[in-house]
Design a protein around this nucleic acid. Structure first.
Lengths: 149, 149
DNA sequence: ACTTGTTAGTTACATTTTCAACTAATATGC
DNA sequence: GCATATTAGTTGAAAATGTAACTAACAAGT
């Protein structure tokens, strides 16, 4: 019989997934219906829009994305003419990615949608709770992959 | 240029996914390595372990799971001899699912693993923050599918 | 009884993700 | 300079997921 102090319905990985799925599903029409983007594509777009030109590798690190996922998202965004690759002369293995004007326009539009969405969500939480929530999520998203000695 | 008060790296769906992925990846070896279970299978197992015999439909509602996902998870758990179906005489469309002794053993083991994991995670948050976090996640997981009139 | 509708669950097919192997460019040890 | 290792990124096959159409059992109206 389960302890009074630990109920699986409050198990953090479970709750996190429930909440993440729910919120992602609620937001996905913004990039999906209008631009035919996948979630990974939207993430790549938003990293480039937010932080400017960078390599796929860097995006993978920042977004905790596997390189094959990133590679395919970049290819898809390139096919949609939302970004271009610029080869770097010194090291031709990696390419710098940057948004095209169309990509920046989509980014600007999605940025507004995201802000509106975020504000809407926060009306359902108190200001203080929202602050705590974000702080916790940042901590949990970053935690322990430090690895070896 | 982005507002000072809204940075996409704090966009809730994004943060939730990052945190959920991270925590799920950290816990998944518990059911994956030892029992070859998928996340959905673990969820179904845990609902049956926690709440006892119920139909697939009920699990879908509780876990916010799509019926095809549940159907496949049930089939997989049945193949692993972790659960059995019991047809209901009055309405033979639905079957009650219940864990076998092997299923209950796996559940007991994973329950302990989950509790240990949860406690470990919570050492990284204050008691009060953990409480707020769970409250917010429950709210965000439940929100708005009420739909039409 | 008998068409029509609904519900629980399955199956088939397309899309997406993951895993592992691969290419190409650069760096390192000798 | 040449073998070896590492790094950035791509590709193909296998696994998993989502979508839609399907079956089987029941319900309801006529």
């Amino acid at each position: 019989m389960p302890d009074a102090d630990f109920n699986l319905s409050e198990f953090l990985p479970y709750l996190l997934n429930q909440a993440a799925d729910r919120q992602s599903m609620a937001f996905s029409p913004a990039y999906r219906a209008r631009y035919g983007m996948l979630r990974t594509e939207w993430r790549v777009l938003f990293h480039l829009g937010q932080y400017g030109e960078m390599t796929a590798k860097r995006i993978c690190e920042m977004a905790q994305l596997h390189k094959t996922k990133a590679s395919r998202a970049v290819a898809a965004l390139e096919a949609k003419r939302f970004l271009r690759r610029r080869e770097v002369a010194e090291d031709r293995r990696h390419a710098l990615l940057r948004l095209t004007p169309a990509g920046r326009a989509a980014y600007a539009h999605l940025y507004d949608a995201a802000r509106a969405f975020d504000m809407e969500v926060q009306t359902r939480l108190t200001v203080e709770d929202a602050r705590v929530l974000k702080r916790c999520l940042i901590k949990l998203a970053a935690s322990e992959d430090a690895g070896g000695p």
